[in-house]
Design a binder for these strands. Structure first.
Lengths: 207, 207
DNA sequence: GTCTATATCAGGATAGAC
DNA sequence: GTCTATCCTGATATAGAC
């Protein structure tokens, strides 16, 4: 009987990791067209030929990176870190705060967003993967949450979730992505408080 | 006395126009790094040397184009086309509708947004020009409008303007920029109606 | 001021030894 | 499977004639 040979058809995942690591930096920093294979090679500490033995071309490497990030990056998945038992208005404000902090603290998220939007014309599949893995998850979670808390008296949870996330994303785009927070300044707590006031029923008694 | 010589220090603005025209197409379609001077030359119908006589380098040409577009492009300036005398809720819905239509009908707006966001890391000044000329204008107009209509009972017009525009921008990003409207579908009228319901006071009597 | 022709060099991708 | 060395296309930018 044939000896069970250790699975290793996939070309040495050690180098693959190095390449992906270096490529991620490079693509995030320079975009697709601006990325240089030479720099990826240097950052990864491998030879150029090795890169091309693991990935057919630059485009394949790029899509691999971005798709991987769409799975890993969490912008809205803060559920685990949070206390579900808080009152809804407290929970929602925490949720929004965490989301804003996450983005501000992780510059990779910003460059990732820039890439997704910037290349969405040439790589629509990547944009769609982003929407499925990140936006959709956040929207559906919030919709569910709003639906599950009838005391909030949300008339249209689906739209309310969009308004909530849309406001946050817009804020992130102005402040962090476009680096223009000072041009249209607003205090963050004021934004969140007034936003929650709009969303939760006006005649709030015991939220 | 010296004969008044016809002003022509600016290198033939005829060619300049052609170059800018061609460059706009090229940069919008391929981004900064992906744009090729050769294609600009071809589209403009001039020689490469002429381009470099009018602009010091690729980057200068790029920033000229984008800054020009930030002045010309109107996403939120729909005031002139609208009847100010409508009731606020009608006006606001018209305003939002017009804005969504404008974007959907003009693919240049989409590629412009992609460029601004995509290059905002490397060209922050362009991003800031965009915010000043487009976002800020929209936000301030809406804030003013909400303030001027006290019957709406807007507690915080500044934030409400952001919520309104943020929701619209987010919708545009998902549907048009990222081309993923089908992945997180929502009927446009439902979005606008529910959004307005959130914004205008619940106890609406005569808006 | 505008063109043609060209310098210069960097990019992605591969051949062939080990 | 990995490296070194190289191919070759095509990019930005310029020199020099008109």
């Amino acid at each position: 009987m044939t000896k069970a040979k250790p699975v290793e058809r996939e070309l040495s995942s050690k180098k693959t990791e190095l390449i992906l690591e270096g490529a991620m930096q490079e693509f995030l920093e320079h975009g697709y067209a601006g990325a240089r294979i030479d720099r990826i090679v240097e950052a990864a500490g491998v030879s150029k030929a090795t890169v091309y033995r693991h990935f057919p071309d630059k485009e394949a490497l790029f899509t691999a990176i971005i798709q991987q990030m769409s799975c890993r990056k969490t912008i809205f998945e803060l559920q685990s870190q949070q206390s579900f038992e808080e009152s809804p208005s407290v929970f929602l404000k925490q949720y929004a705060s965490k989301m804003l902090d996450n983005v501000a603290e992780d510059p990779q998220v910003l460059t990732f967003l820039r890439i997704i939007v910037g290349e969405s014309g040439r790589f629509p599949e990547l944009a769609r993967a982003f929407v499925i893995n990140i936006e959709k998850v956040g929207l559906e979670f919030l919709t569910q949450y709003l639906t599950n808390h009838p005391q909030l008296q949300i008339a249209d949870p689906e739209v309310t979730a969009r308004v909530f996330i849309g406001t946050l994303i817009h804020f992130v785009i102005l402040r962090d992505v476009l680096q223009s927070g000072d041009l249209v300044p607003i205090e963050r707590d004021r934004l969140l408080d007034s936003l929650l006031n709009l969303i939760v029923s006006k005649n709030e008694v015991s939220l």
